[in-house]
Amino acid sequence: MSHDGLSACTRCGLCVEACPQHVLGLAVDGVMLLPGAGECSFCGACAEICPEPVFDAIPVMVHVAQIGPDCLVRAGITCMTCRDACPEMAITLIPRIGGPFLPHLDASACTGCNACIAPCPADAIEAVPIKAPADA
């Protein structure tokens, strides 16, 4: 979903019905990717059916994943679920002495597909808006 295109959303719901993964929903301000509903595969069904310029051709969302403080490794529990679920390999594990490997999310590699959110056993991953680069 493009930043500018979202404002063109009329909330008709055609994209929600067309989504084979059932990960789209309607919000007050337009269509949204439902957190925890599963992974967007970027199949393009939403873009094909949408009569408005809401979806752009670049397969990225207006958000990225963020691993929060409730991550199990913070409690000393080994977990690699987010890394294993990420189709873009945007999540890597950083070794550390005296504890389980720490997950590190490369926001520049994250497409915002949400594949890591639903499988997280601690509900420690959320979608956050992409920060606009500082004006030069």
Rank of each mutant, 00 (worst) to 15 (best):
residue 52 E to P: 00
residue 54 V to E: 00
residue 54 V to G: 03
residue 55 F to T: 04
residue 55 F to E: 00
residue 57 A to K: 08
residue 58 I to L: 10
residue 58 I to H: 08
residue 60 V to N: 03
residue 62 V to I: 05
residue 63 H to G: 04
residue 65 A to C: 11
residue 65 A to P: 00
residue 65 A to M: 03
residue 65 A to I: 04
residue 66 Q to F: 00
residue 67 I to K: 02
residue 68 G to F: 02
residue 68 G to I: 02
residue 68 G to L: 14
residue 68 G to M: 12
residue 68 G to D: 09
residue 69 P to G: 14
residue 69 P to C: 06
residue 69 P to R: 12
residue 70 D to S: 15
residue 71 C to L: 09
residue 72 L to D: 01
residue 74 R to H: 08
residue 74 R to I: 08
residue 75 A to T: 09
residue 75 A to L: 10
residue 76 G to D: 02
residue 77 I to H: 06
residue 78 T to C: 10
residue 79 C to V: 01
residue 80 M to P: 00
residue 80 M to C: 07
residue 80 M to A: 15
residue 81 T to E: 09
residue 81 T to V: 15
residue 81 T to N: 09
residue 82 C to W: 03
residue 82 C to P: 05
residue 82 C to T: 03
residue 84 D to P: 01
residue 85 A to L: 13
residue 85 A to P: 04
residue 86 C to P: 05
residue 87 P to V: 12
residue 87 P to L: 15
residue 88 E to L: 14
residue 89 M to V: 07
residue 89 M to H: 15
residue 89 M to W: 07
residue 89 M to D: 10
residue 89 M to F: 13
residue 93 L to W: 01
residue 94 I to S: 13
residue 94 I to A: 14
residue 95 P to W: 09
residue 95 P to M: 11
residue 95 P to G: 14
residue 96 R to N: 07
residue 98 G to I: 06
residue 100 P to R: 13
residue 101 F to N: 10
residue 102 L to P: 00
residue 102 L to V: 10
residue 103 P to H: 05
residue 104 H to D: 02
residue 105 L to R: 10
residue 105 L to C: 12
residue 106 D to N: 15
residue 107 A to R: 08
residue 107 A to H: 04
residue 107 A to C: 00
residue 108 S to A: 14
residue 108 S to G: 04
residue 109 A to Y: 00
residue 109 A to M: 07
residue 109 A to E: 00
residue 109 A to L: 13
residue 110 C to G: 10
residue 110 C to S: 05
residue 111 T to W: 01
residue 113 C to Q: 01
residue 113 C to I: 01
